[in-house]
């Protein structure tokens, strides 16, 4: 879990740098166009091919950790603790399936683009595998995190028993880890 968290932080950091660069790139591009009649070549493609993909896919796992995915909890909140826990494991399994499929397809796409040396057509011929590679990387990360949550969660049920509310469960998983 520790190594996982470190790699994840690194990826999330890249996403942060991306969103920050994005902001300045757009502004500088607009300013150059109005002031010097000469926009920054390739801004459009760079944001579309790299920054957007990085900032979304590399923060997938962290968003899960921060409980950022919205869900409808009206009914869920009414269930007893044990059921909540079981449902939570079910949710994780669905999530693992969903992101694995996206990640696997993203991986296949990336390999294909890499083997064929695909480049974008335009003034700067960007290698395209560098654009899609963030899809499998991000998905791999969130799948690993979900999978570990599942393993640790199940183990905790057997060793400690059920005592936490579902929303505290994630926290507990991470805080238990710190102890080890």
């Amino acid at each position: 879990m520790n190594i996982l968290n470190k790699i994840d932080s690194l990826m999330f950091c890249m996403a942060k740098v991306s969103i920050f660069i994005c902001m300045f790139l757009i502004t500088i591009n607009a300013a150059m166009r109005y002031l010097f009649n000469k926009p920054l070549t390739g801004t459009y493609e760079f944001i579309e091919l790299f920054l957007m993909v990085i900032l979304v896919f590399l923060s997938l796992s962290y968003t899960w950790k921060l409980k950022g995915f919205i869900s409808i909890t009206v009914l869920f909140n009414k269930f007893p603790l044990l059921i909540k826990n079981l449902i939570y494991f079910g949710i994780i399994i669905l999530g693992v399936c969903f992101f694995s499929l996206i990640g696997y397809e993203g991986y296949a796409t990336t390999v294909e683009k890499w083997l064929n040396n695909e480049v974008s057509s335009g003034v700067i011929p960007w290698p395209l595998f560098l654009s899609t590679v963030w899809v499998p990387l991000g998905c791999l990360m969130i799948v690993l995190r979900m999978f570990l949550e599942l393993v640790i969660g199940v183990r905790n049920i057997f060793s400690i028993g059920i005592r936490s509310d579902i929303f505290e469960m994630q926290d507990e998983i991470y805080s238990n880890e710190e102890l080890e």
Partner: peptide
Amino acid sequence: GGLLDLTLNELQGTP
């Protein structure tokens, strides 16, 4: 975009 930008660059325009 794409090849049209190359052409315009070649003709010294601003794409």
